[in-house]
Amino acid sequence: MTGPLLEVGTRLPDLAVPPILRTTLALFAGGSGDHNPIHLDLDIARSAGMDDVFAQGMLSMAYLARLLTDNFPVESLRSYRVRFAAITPVHARPTCQGEVRDVSEVDGERRATLDLSVSLADGTVTLTGEAVVACP
């Protein structure tokens, strides 16, 4: 991070993602290699009991990773994990948030552990997680 030293309680600036389009889901299928048609094909989604297609969980995890790499060099990431809590509908507007929970010395480097979440405009939390980054 180019700003001040990270401390417990430091909040990263929120990353607000524009509404997710069906086009986004198609492009992400190609980019991510996840070709599961439940995210692309309304007929398949309906046959699985859904009203509509919905976003790939890994798309939200990728958005949240942007919050990390916007604030820390990609090579400083030590670990990153999430739990998928709710599906993300088409047209949803995810907001990615992160806050430093802990800072400690590990293997001779200073590491910050961040609590992470993605939530939608209606308050639904779609994803929670944590990341560990090496920091100055």
Binding site: A48, M58, R78, S79, Y80, R81, V82, R83, F84
Partner: peptide, 17 residues
């Protein structure tokens, strides 16, 4: 049945870029 499948959690540990 793939219609019953959910991605529950995902984790990455990084060793090098």
């Amino acid at each position: 049945d793939l219609a019953a499948l959910l991605h529950g959690e995902q984790e990455f540990t990084y060793h090098r870029t």
